[in-house]
Simulated assay, not measured.
Amino acid sequence: MSSGEVKLIGAWASPFVMRPRVALNLKSVPYEFLQETFGSKSELLLKSNPVHKKIPVLLHADKPVCESNIIVEYIDETWSSSGPSILPSHPYDRAMARFWAAYIDEKWFGALRNFLKAEGEEEKKAVIAQMEEGNALLEKAFIDCSKGKPFFNGDNIGYLDISLGSFLAWLRVTELTASHKLLDEAKTPSLCKWAELFCNDPAVKPVMPETAKLAEFAKKIFAKPQA
Rank of each mutant, 00 (worst) to 15 (best):
3 S>F: 08
3 S>G: 11
3 S>K: 15
6 V>E: 03
7 K>Q: 09
8 L>M: 08
8 L>N: 00
16 F>Q: 03
16 F>M: 11
16 F>A: 13
17 V>L: 06
18 M>H: 09
18 M>C: 02
19 R>D: 04
22 V>R: 10
25 N>K: 01
25 N>S: 01
28 S>D: 08
28 S>I: 07
29 V>A: 01
31 Y>P: 03
33 F>M: 00
35 Q>G: 08
36 E>Q: 02
37 T>C: 00
43 E>I: 05
44 L>P: 00
44 L>E: 03
44 L>H: 08
45 L>R: 15
47 K>N: 12
48 S>N: 02
49 N>A: 04
49 N>H: 06
52 H>W: 03
53 K>E: 03
54 K>A: 08
55 I>T: 09
55 I>Q: 04
57 V>W: 07
58 L>A: 04
58 L>N: 10
59 L>G: 14
60 H>Y: 02
60 H>F: 03
61 A>V: 07
62 D>Q: 12
65 V>K: 11
66 C>D: 01
68 S>T: 14
78 T>W: 10
78 T>M: 01
79 W>C: 05
83 G>E: 06
88 P>F: 05
89 S>F: 11
91 P>V: 12
92 Y>K: 13
93 D>M: 13
95 A>D: 06
97 A>S: 05
98 R>F: 04
98 R>I: 15
103 Y>E: 11
104 I>N: 11
104 I>C: 08
110 G>D: 15
110 G>W: 12
111 A>I: 12
111 A>K: 12
113 R>G: 10
